[in-house]
């Protein structure tokens, strides 16, 4: 589904990713771990198409197409979803309006009829239950005045509505207490299917107690320096990042 080969990327002339390789197939869950500043969030932003990052080398193929050629909104419509580490507030724009616009833009792109108000409301109710989101929340402006937990739940709620093929979740566990973490993890697990894939980016192993990854990768200094199964995460937790750094 996603194939990253020798990817290098820079921001303001500073190289962050330095020849990164990653293969993600349908039905898989990958966890990318690494210390602060290793390039985890940069990787997420590059896949989502943030223009502040400049791809200096390498290629990224998504469902057989060159991903790097597509603008951010096309990537989204092709099924890439990014769960933001710091979801931005958009005052005055309700989540309901925001999501309905997003869904209909995607449907238009796919040549489908726009969803009617009633259909959308029904869909929203259904997904709300899935991520245990309060009814009132969807009438509020996007992320405005949300607590850390609400913001992250809202990300998962949007993911549920947009039904992506590939989800990149950037530090979705940061700033969550254990209850919120369970809700978020549960949502992600419910959305897991044979035909989609998830990349979970995290600093701590904690989240991986709830979302069992098929693969764990350690990102350090812009490169994946070690890959393995879920046991790698446990080993990392015990020995710390210094361990892999030394091994390198």
């Amino acid at each position: 589904m996603l194939s990253i080969k020798n990817l290098s990327a820079a921001i303001n002339g500073k190289t962050i990713l330095k020849g990164l390789n990653l293969e993600v197939k349908e039905g898989e869950v990958h966890a990318i771990m690494g210390p602060n500043g290793s390039g985890k969030s940069t990787l997420a932003s590059v896949i989502a198409g943030r223009e502040t990052f400049e791809v200096t080398e390498g290629e990224v193929t998504y469902l057989g197409s060159n991903l790097l050629d597509m603008p951010a909104e096309t990537r989204a419509r092709e099924g890439i979803f990014m769960g933001f580490q710091y979801p931005v507030e958009i005052p005055g724009v309700s989540i309901a309006n925001f999501m309905r616009t997003a869904i209909n833009e995607k449907r238009k792109y796919l040549g489908l009829e726009p969803m009617t108000g009633a259909e959308f409301l029904k869909l929203m109710e259904e997904k709300k239950k899935m991520v245990d989101i309060q009814s009132k929340l969807t009438n509020r402006s996007v992320n405005e005045g949300f607590s850390g937990g609400e913001k992250k739940k809202n990300e998962i709620f949007q993911m549920a509505l947009l039904e992506p093929k590939l989800s990149i979740l950037d530090e979705t566990d940061s700033g969550l207490d254990i209850d919120a973490l369970k809700v978020v993890a549960n949502g992600i697990n419910l959305l897991r299917r044979k035909d989609n894939a998830t990349v979970v980016i995290t600093h701590y192993q904690r989240l991986l107690d709830f979302i069992i990854p098929d693969f764990v990768h350690v990102l350090f200094d812009g490169r994946i320096i070690r890959s393995g199964g879920k046991e790698l995460a446990i080993e990392l937790e015990e020995k710390g990042y210094d361990w892999v750094k030394k091994e390198k």
Partner: peptide, 30 residues
Amino acid sequence: ISEDQLFYCLQRGIDMEGAIGLIVNGYAKE
């Protein structure tokens, strides 16, 4: 207009004009 807000909209599949429209209308909502 915030680049973060624009990118957030783009990432959800809304194009640039749509994103500006949304954000501006939100801004003027009051």
